[in-house]
Nucleic acid binder design. Structure first.
Lengths: 351, 351
DNA sequence: TTGTAAGCGTTATCAC
DNA sequence: GTGATAACGCTTACAA
């Protein structure tokens, strides 16, 4: 146990630097020494200490992900999917992943600063974008390689991001409902601090405007990004004397909550109530009825984020481009637009 | 940028050791020096270098998870759920998570040895148990803190594990189908190298025996642990001249594949074909029809694994107990036992 | 092509 | 209580 580079060097009759060079596959090293050192490494069952290496190289070949303090937020099915995309790229590019879960006694700003300065990671992927998040100040100040999944607040300029065009996406979703004949449409969104909520609400409003439909603030619900939030939000909307006939939910999980509430209150979907979601998580196609939703291509979001981060780590001096991932309306059954002869031509028709 | 412990020491007019003691909250340190050092740390915006600390302390407060080489295996919904349990406990106990994805050019044995010897993690959680997996030899030899989720092969004695009683679980699942009147029951399992497949197959066989039903090897399908495997497996079973009337699928994802195949071939579930799954992933309650399955309490599995691992890291000399997590039959609609007056009394009745 | 030696940023041991 | 000093295991000038 605990065989180190010196042991190998000694046994092979060379210096530690030579062993180091063999490990690094240094070009100027004689074939025979290389051979000999490799043999000894096998013999002694030597494995390099990555920590020691990181200390001197100041890099760890590891991408960091900050698990939000509110941990359940991380288990919206959106995140496992993003993680999947990140993992695929990380694996193929030779990077490991570090999930920072500890330090949860600190706030997000401090946690970010800590994880960055701890030197355990070479870059950071930020999973959510909140208005006035002090975390952005840290990232801009430290100039640490990072990619935000989502849109940064307008005050933040220098941060690389990968996002969807959520305003358009929500515009299209709302328009879909309008074209199906709805003119009283509710909006169930996450916390308004989330940029994604703001953008999707904006698209909703723009679609109403474009159709010259009135905007009624009583139809707007801001809840938490969990199924329960969609549930109670839906209850409130159904309790209105003039209830909406259709719902834009800014997240599939909220949509499921809304569907559950509607079901329990005796409404049929889509006959009595149309519901459209966002993200197209794997569950969406399997729910009953299958959920019409806007796919944001989650896995691609994760893949691209990892790619951009790795490029940034490898070529820090280059100018890197933020990017928009496309979205598509996925028409299933929860809005009643599944009639094959229905005139509206969906982007994607599924199941 | 890059302020280190020496900078702090200098500015505070003390030695690096003193600063180190302040960081470690060492008892024998005067209140005033402590105060002064803390102030300077804030002033200089000092954050400790975790890598350097790990190097000397030989520990990293990090739990490792080896992402399987076959990465899609990791995205069976079982794993995100396990990860969720692990994350919860890791967070509350102050451990971070390291997902080893790189090194995928190596085999699992080498990857395991590498990650352990790299010193980046204090303990390892193994997500799957395969017969004759050379990984176990490594773990036993290195005596590295680790917990296996699943049952180790009988040849492996010294490894801590957390598991379900899969034989009983499968016995009960099969028995449920038998009690519903089925006597020709197919089994769609994962690769037979997986211990979990072996155990669940065994429970299935025992239930047939107990009911004096014949065992027909043509009714046994071994596929990959992916939806597609369940799909093709089901097609093969349906093509039999004497097709089964019910299916035990050793994984919910396989069950979904089977359901899809059955649906496409024109069979109704549960009227024409009963299907029972395993794990109770979140999707199971939402499928159409909702899937009857055996809950293995995935999150608890992950939580307990993390707890056991952390205990083992903290008290390596103690004797640690492996454990069994309970399971429950969750009766939904895919087996036709949803009639409230049906005599069979399910463990859990859901939706 | 190989070796020597300094240093990465900490903590631990042992003085005082 | 506090400070030197020596590790920890590796990489990398610089020398040879």
């Amino acid at each position: 146990m605990g065989v180190n580079i010196k042991d190998v060097a000694f046994r092979a009759g060379v210096s530690p630097s030579t062993v180091s060079r063999v490990i690094a596959d240094h070009p100027r090293i004689s074939a025979e020494t290389k051979e000999r050192v490799l043999t000894v490494m096998k013999e002694l069952d030597y494995h390099p200490n990555a920590i020691a290496r990181s200390l001197v190289k100041k890099s760890s070949e590891t991408l960091g992900i900050l698990i939000p303090n509110n941990i359940e937020e991380f288990f919206n099915p959106f995140f496992p999917e993003v993680l999947r995309g990140i993992t695929q790229v990380a694996q193929s590019e030779g990077y490991d992943l570090f999930l920072s879960t500890s330090l949860n006694h600190l706030n997000d700003r401090e946690r970010t600063e800590n994880i960055i300065r701890s030197k355990r990671i070479d870059g950071l992927i930020i999973l959510t974008s909140k208005e006035n998040d002090p975390l952005f100040e840290v990232l801009e100040r430290l100039k640490f390689p990072s990619v935000l999944i989502g849109r940064p607040p307008v005050t933040v300029s220098s941060l690389l991001w990968i996002n969807n065009d959520n305003v358009s996406a929500s515009f299209e979703a709302t328009q879909h409902l309008i074209e199906l004949g709805h003119h009283r449409i509710g909006f169930i969104g996450g916390n308004h601090d989330f940029i994604v909520t703001q953008d999707r609400l904006k698209g909703y409003q723009q679609a109403l405007e474009a159709a010259k439909l009135p905007f009624d603030p009583r139809l707007i619900i801001a809840s938490e990004f969990i199924e329960e939030g969609g549930y109670t939000g839906m209850l409130r909307l159904l309790a209105l004397s003039d209830r909406p006939s259709a719902i834009v939910a800014s997240d599939d999980v909220l949509a499921f909550g809304a569907m559950r509430a509607a079901g329990e209150m005796g409404y049929r979907i889509p006959e009595d109530l149309a519901i459209i979601g966002f993200n197209d998580i794997p569950l969406a196609k399997l729910s009953n009825p299958p959920l019409t939703t806007v796919s944001v291509n989650i896995i691609e979001l994760g893949q691209k984020a990892a790619e951009m981060l790795i490029r940034q780590i490898q070529y820090p001096e280059k100018l890197h481009q933020s990017a928009i991932i496309s979205h598509e309306l996925v028409i299933r059954r929860s809005c009643g637009a599944w009639n094959p002869v229905f005139p509206y031509q969906p982007t994607v028709r599924d199941r």
